[in-house]
Amino acid sequence: MAISRNIAATYRGPGRVVSRLMTMGPREDRALAYLMGACALIFVAQLPRLAREAHLSGEDLNMLMGATLMAWIFIAPLMFYCIALLARVVARLFGGKGTGYGARLALFWALLASTPLLLLHGLVAGFIGPGIQLQLVGLLWCGCFVWFWVSGTLAQERAA
């Protein structure tokens, strides 16, 4: 199934999508591609906010974009690998039967599947700015991300 269809299906049943992805076999290159794709989309989502910030403060937009690119493309993936490791350790303490690959896949897929909401968040931050609208979209993204991650983690922990 195409990634876009899987993302749409995740909003209907995140556990089923992660289970289906797990049946394709452990492919670390696929998990890394999901993570890097999500990080690249998150970087793109930050651009309207950065442009607004640069315009209002008089800072150089290129400097802001460079720092954000460094953070999301080089540093964030390492942090997400560490978070997945911690999630796997916690699941193992509670008797989970999943794998390290499954923990990474559940986290990375949750991040990728929730990026449409992050793109909306970036647009709201860039065009409207700080306010209740930005907070509501951020809360919606946070809720969906946690829902996707927890559902995917539970599915992969039970499947193994």
Rank of each mutant, 00 (worst) to 15 (best):
A40T: 00
G13H: 02
G100D: 08
A159S: 08
C39S: 06
K97A: 12
M24I: 05
F74G: 00
I128G: 04
T99V: 05
L78K: 13
Y81K: 08
I128L: 14
F108D: 00
E53F: 13
M63S: 15
L112K: 04
A2N: 12
G102D: 04
L69F: 13
L105W: 03
M63A: 15
N6A: 12
V89S: 07
G66M: 05
L35Q: 01
A76I: 05
G152D: 04
A113K: 03
L134F: 09
V146L: 15
L123I: 11
W109K: 01
C142D: 15
L41H: 08
C39N: 06
E28R: 13
H121K: 15
Q156C: 05
N62D: 11
M22R: 08
T99H: 04
V137H: 03
A160C: 07
W141E: 11
Q156T: 07
A67M: 13
Y11G: 02
I132E: 13
C142V: 15
G138C: 10
R52A: 04
V89C: 06
A91K: 00
L154A: 13
P116G: 05
Q133S: 13
L61M: 03
P116L: 06
R52T: 00
L35C: 03
L134R: 12
L78H: 09
S114W: 15
E157N: 06
G15C: 08
P130T: 13
A160W: 15
G25K: 02
T68P: 08
L41V: 10
H55T: 13
A38N: 01
V124I: 10
L69Q: 03
L118Y: 14
P48R: 08
G129V: 02
L154T: 08
G131F: 06
A113C: 06
K97G: 14
D60S: 12
Q135D: 12
A40R: 00
R88W: 07
L154K: 15
V90D: 05
A106D: 01
A160P: 11
R92W: 10
G98S: 00
C82K: 14
V124C: 03
A155P: 08
I128H: 10
L32I: 08
A45G: 07
A31T: 06
S4H: 11
Y34E: 00
L41I: 12
F108K: 03
Y34T: 00
F43Y: 05
A9R: 02
G13N: 11
V146M: 14
W147F: 15
L61S: 03
N62L: 12
S114F: 15
